[in-house]
Design a protein around this nucleic acid. Structure first.
Lengths: 138, 138
DNA sequence: GCCTAAATGAAAACCCGTTTCAATTACCAT
DNA sequence: ATGGTAATTGAAACGGGTTTTCATTTAGGC
């Protein structure tokens, strides 16, 4: 996610470019670990003082709908967010430092097609997340 | 998940076989859709009157740790649970009726190995969920 | 049938996230 | 530039789901 991408995309969809939104975008772009809403809130405040937590939640929803942010689902809970660096990709999360890296989604079409054939389901979306330890944490 | 499997496994791990736990196990075994904790609570009460919601949460955690239950992660939220019918498998969820079907985890080793090579991460676990429409809901 | 540690339920506490609403502000048209 | 307008915002109240606390009960080994 580049800052330019996000601002363009916001504009294209008719959303206003407010300082608050740009602050949230910047926080996410500069983070390489997953963040909770209140972490985004804290960091965003340094960029845009007066930013409200409510706005953080609203903006995370917005960016999530536009595909710039993805929720991270962990055993401990599902209230973390990470920037999407690779569209059509997925997240690989480090258990140690919470770093999040994107990897491309390849080699799943066979599995999905096979599942469609065996179950009759029309598969519309999928969610894949890998969890492990990054080189530094091993 | 068969009832026998679950009781055996509970015993093996030194957990007591209480009526409350067996009720939760039975509710999950007989459900073919994902259930929230309070749905498990309601149904479990019919089997074991006096069952408490707190116990339902604790038992879901327990069974989840033993691999008999898996959380279902949806856009609407992550507070649903479904029985694991196929170990080493994953969940396929119907958007219409919430039915959950298991499918085997095959064809992911290549993707994981490739990711390991490219990122250096030691991948320890993965979570895959497919979402779509079942034959009846299409 | 005891004994003891584990398990339970009710109530309170907690926490995350949403709604409400009046005030502000970005952006378009002039 | 300026003004008008609908979108956006923040504070506070609210809501619901989940966890903690703690006294009581109970399963399972002796």
């Amino acid at each position: 996610m580049t800052e330019g991408d996000a601002t363009t995309e916001l504009r294209v969809h008719g959303y206003k470019l407010t300082g608050q939104r740009l602050a949230v975008v910047r926080v996410l772009r500069e983070a390489d670990e997953h963040l909770t809403a209140s972490q985004v809130f804290e960091r965003g405040r340094r960029i845009h003082p007066g930013l409200g937590l409510t706005t953080v939640y609203r903006t995370l929803d917005l960016l999530s709908g536009l595909g710039f942010v993805r929720r991270v689902h962990l055993d401990e809970g599902c209230q973390a967010y990470a920037p999407v660096r690779e569209r059509e990709g997925h997240h690989l999360v480090c258990q140690g430092c919470h770093r999040v890296v994107d990897f491309p989604c390849t080699g799943l079409t066979g599995l999905i097609e096979e599942t469609r054939r065996r179950t009759g389901f029309a598969v519309e979306s999928h969610f894949l997340e890998l969890v492990g330890l990054c080189p530094a944490c091993q």
